[in-house]
Amino acid sequence: MVRIRVLVVDDHRIFAESLAAALAAEPDVDVSAAGSGPAALRCLERAAGENRRYDVLLVDADLGGRPPGGRPAAPGRQGGEEGPADGISLLPGVRSAHPGVRIVVLAERDDPRRAAAALQAGACGWVAKDCSLSRLLTVVRGVLREETHLPPALLTGVLRELTATRRHRTESERLVESLTPREREVLRCMVAGLGRKAVAEHLFLSPHTVRTHMQNVLGKLGVHSTLAAVALARRAGVGPVDLVR
């Protein structure tokens, strides 16, 4: 029998332990639990080093976050470790370091925008935390067959979000293409978080020249701040400059 190795990542201890116990009752499922993003990454690294990699990650969408209203997390949620802002922000790092792992996001509520963000970050599924065990197992087995699973009620909203994101990305790419090669280098330095003086040192330019380039970049991109320029650059797929020489 081929066994499925599942890692539950949820900082609500009672929920995580209950879900893990329910999954462990299945004859073909081996399950572990992690209470935070950093703990999950350690589990993945340790398992990979021992050649017993996980197949599926079940990640709480609100991992490490606060409940509605900004109140402190309820008792039973583990703290003390600095991790991602939420479960979705954990996904890119997992996909980069462990591309063979399938990720399913567990959510307390349907949210087309966050579900679309999860898919773009590498998730294969979005499932309600109160769904039945049989439904969850269907999704777990489905993503291992390269399927993508979303609640039917979310499909239209998610497609709309993905279409809008693609439209914004296309516009951002067009604006970035209007930059000169030197202006693109400056933009990549901005994406890396370098200030004017650091950009000048990295590109062997005078601070005055860098200031002029930065002003040109903001003008051509149609934005009024470095933060806005960096956000647009990231939408266009512009990465940070390599600072290692």
Rank of each mutant, 00 (worst) to 15 (best):
T165C: 14
A73Y: 00
A200C: 02
N51C: 09
L119S: 01
V140T: 01
V241E: 13
V223H: 09
P181Y: 02
A21C: 05
N216Y: 06
A39C: 00
C43V: 07
C189E: 00
G70P: 02
D130H: 12
K197S: 15
P84F: 03
R102C: 11
R196Q: 14
R52V: 08
D62P: 01
A21L: 12
G219D: 15
N216H: 14
R113P: 06
L194K: 03
A48P: 01
S134W: 07
R113Y: 09
L90E: 10
A33K: 11
S36W: 09
R77L: 05
G157S: 06
P84E: 06
P27I: 00
R95S: 02
S18V: 12
R182L: 14
E50H: 08
V241G: 07
L119Y: 04
D10P: 05
R109A: 15
A164I: 03
R5C: 01
R71N: 13
P240T: 11
A20N: 07
E108N: 11
P75N: 01
R5S: 10
P75T: 02
S89E: 15
G64Q: 09
T180E: 13
V59E: 02
R182Y: 05
G222R: 01
S18G: 15
R95M: 06
E82R: 15
D10M: 02
L187S: 02
A116G: 08
S132R: 08
A116K: 05
V104T: 10
A115V: 05
V127I: 14
L227F: 12
D242V: 14
R42S: 12
V158M: 00
W126I: 12
T148V: 15
A228P: 01
W126C: 10
G64K: 04
G79W: 02
P72N: 13
R167V: 11
L175F: 12
E201H: 01
A73C: 07
V139A: 05
A33I: 12
G239N: 03
A153Q: 14
D60M: 03
V6I: 14
G83E: 06
E146T: 11
V29F: 06
K129R: 13
L137N: 03
P99N: 05
V56A: 09
L227A: 14
L203G: 04
R141A: 09
E183H: 04
A16M: 09
A198T: 00
R188G: 06
R135V: 13
